[in-house]
Nucleic acid binder design. Sequence first.
DNA 1: GCGGTCCAATACCCGATCGATCTACCGGCG
DNA 2: CGCCGGTAGATCGATCGGGTATTGGACCGC
Lengths: 93, 93
Amino acid sequence: MSLTQLGYFVAVAEEQHISRAARRLHVSQPPLSRQIRSLEDELGAPLFERTPRGVRLLPAGERFLGHARAILAAVAAARHAVAAPPPVPADRP
Amino acid sequence: MSLTQLGYFVAVAEEQHISRAARRLHVSQPPLSRQIRSLEDELGAPLFERTPRGVRLLPAGERFLGHARAILAAVAAARHAVAAPPPVPADRP
DNA sequence: GCGGTCCAATACCCGATCGATCTACCGGCG
DNA sequence: CGCCGGTAGATCGATCGGGTATTGGACCGC
């Protein structure tokens, strides 16, 4: 599992469509399909149901989606924590 | 930034020693040094102070460490969320 | 002061992985 | 029934991650 895969997963879940998500992510469709499948393989359970009109989240995918968003948010927070020096409230006039 | 890098960073922070962390992680020292440096480059700030006896966390590194652990814990939680079916409290005898 | 020792950093190489292009296959719809 | 949209598979080139060998630098005992 990689952070890239988590971002891919969230995009596909939001678009409910692999090709649309691929355009949004500026990658092409086949790699995106593979990454999603690889993620499902690693987790040992399918996350999406494939339909002729796109894909739809399965219950396991719904549960995973919340966690994926939390992880990505935590990553963003970690970046900011390094960039911003620790605030010193007592020293704020 | 990758999850691998975060795991590496936590190990080095705990060991305060790149070579020891490398042994613990079952990788060799040069790749580990490179990954740490690459992480620092990406974040735009050094995380460790290099000393002749090893390395020591800088303030920015301390702040980052907490976030890194939180991210890794969130990843573990995400795996479990997919593996375990949603608990139905009303159905528990 | 000098050689030995321990540490991180660098140079170079190789195998694995990722992404792009092209193609195949399947289901809905006019 | 043919067309059009979607996902899935094969193949190629580039990029990335790790290993070995080596260098550079600071402490320490002599």
